[in-house]
Design a protein around this nucleic acid. Structure first.
Lengths: 246, 246
DNA sequence: GGACCGACTTGACCTGGGTCAAGTCCGCGG
DNA sequence: CCGCGGACTTGACCCAGGTCAAGTCGGTCC
């Protein structure tokens, strides 16, 4: 795992795993006191700057990573050099699990899209924690299952829905994350800053940046969502939800 | 799990799990003698006709299924009614695993594309087998991981490759299955009958049947692959492999 | 401040694949 | 043998999104 240009995590250093505010929301929520002690010794938390790479396709997988803050892209590149972001990792999700529980080598790159704080737990520690608390193994399997179901949903969306709807669905995902603000507090309006560049947005949607610009322009016209630079405001979340058919 | 129009599997009835020719190739390969006894009591093997449905999205998941012969499509349908085959299940693979290890309900339909023989193992039996032989749990996780990696590959292919290449890749997958014949025995030529209708092929590729017809016609012209009705012949497997960039 | 550079936008144009409407083919029942 | 119906094909046309070539904008480094 490349450690280029990372620095120890100030927040992390002050926290013990026992009082870590992220763990109860994470896939390690079921860890008992003994398991937490293992985690305390066996984990490493660092801040990764935007643009850095946590691992790349083919790398051996030294353990499991958990994103506590920021945004990670899982990106695949075809032999001819065509690349696509196949999945986004939001906080507080584990990633690199398929490689850990499966073939032992990563099948894609993990790229940091916006400054992220990542907890890395070594293979040996994970195994020990699972032995200590079997429910941890179950919740990791659960995560993997959810990821597979989400990937199959993504295949449906990519294959059968026009760009405009794909884009709106992505915006809804981003609007559900911790960085989204609700100025009125009534749960209807939402505002946030895009944690991805236009290029990365386009790559996530499987389109060209030019098409993304045009799509944003078009959506701006119909008032469902407003995007100026990186600032996104959704005037009516409910309306947006019905627009994507949910 | 719907059992409409299925009949007990003649082959299956004659076989004991101990001597089952499929198990050593399956995800239950690591089962010890005690585990095999559990399987013997806790499994059910039936033949499913083409067109039948093994489960549908939302169904509770009563266990794990293993396809020993035939072909299954995992199909998702969007709320607006647009549907797509998100994955094909080939023999001898387990399916319905994500629901079993995850949320407990299926996220998609499983449709039988060509007459299939399916071994179903109840939840309780699977749990007992895993307790008996922890390596079984590991190989199921392994399967799930492989499925996720394959799904992410499918996203890349769907998002970034033209129809012609998607089609050739699908043909290569089909050519690697047990039904493919090699008339000369030199491993270069391959022949087989398509186990899917044109409609299902199109649905797997995320295109319309009309486009599929045109693509096949076009490929026929350049000699890489020959398709007459359901008969497929690949004159030069190596050439096909390099054509898709591998 | 100014020069530079990369990210983004805009416009003009093209094309892969979708859509719609006729066919044609084939298997089946009578 | 005929008539029917569903799966597949063909042709004509269209349009979403890709491509290419200029822009413009904003940030950073002297």
């Amino acid at each position: 795992m490349a450690r280029t240009s990372t620095r120890p995590d100030e927040e992390g250093c002050r926290l013990s795993c026992r009082s870590c505010p992220f763990r109860p929301e994470s896939d390690l929520r079921d860890l008992g006191p003994a398991g937490i002690d293992l985690l305390q010794l066996g984990h490493d938390r660092r801040i990764w700057p935007a643009g850095s790479r946590v691992f790349r396709a083919g790398d051996p997988c030294p353990g499991v990573s958990i994103l506590t803050r920021g945004l990670i892209a899982i990106r695949k590149v075809s032999p001819e050099g065509r690349s696509m972001i196949v999945r986004l990792v939001f906080p507080v999700r584990a990633f690199g699990l398929a490689a850990f529980l499966g073939p032992g080598r990563h099948g894609a790159d993990a790229v940091v899209l916006s400054e992220s704080s990542i907890c890395t737990v070594g293979k040996r520690t994970v195994t020990a924690m699972i032995e200590q608390d079997p429910s941890v193994g179950r919740s990791l399997m659960n995560r993997l299952s959810q990821d597979l179901l989400a990937a199959e949903e993504a295949i449906l969306v990519l294959g059968r829905m026009p760009v405009r709807e794909r884009f709106l669905r992505l915006m809804l995902q981003l609007a559900a994350q911790p960085w989204a603000q609700d100025p009125d507090g009534d749960g209807d309006r939402v505002q946030f800053d895009l944690p991805l560049s236009r290029q990365d947005l386009a790559s996530t949607l499987g389109i060209r940046p030019e098409t993304l610009t045009r799509t944003i322009h078009e959506l701006d016209g119909c008032g469902l969502i407003r995007i100026r630079g990186r600032r996104v405001s959704v005037p009516d979340l409910g309306g947006l939800l019905t627009a994507v058919g949910e």
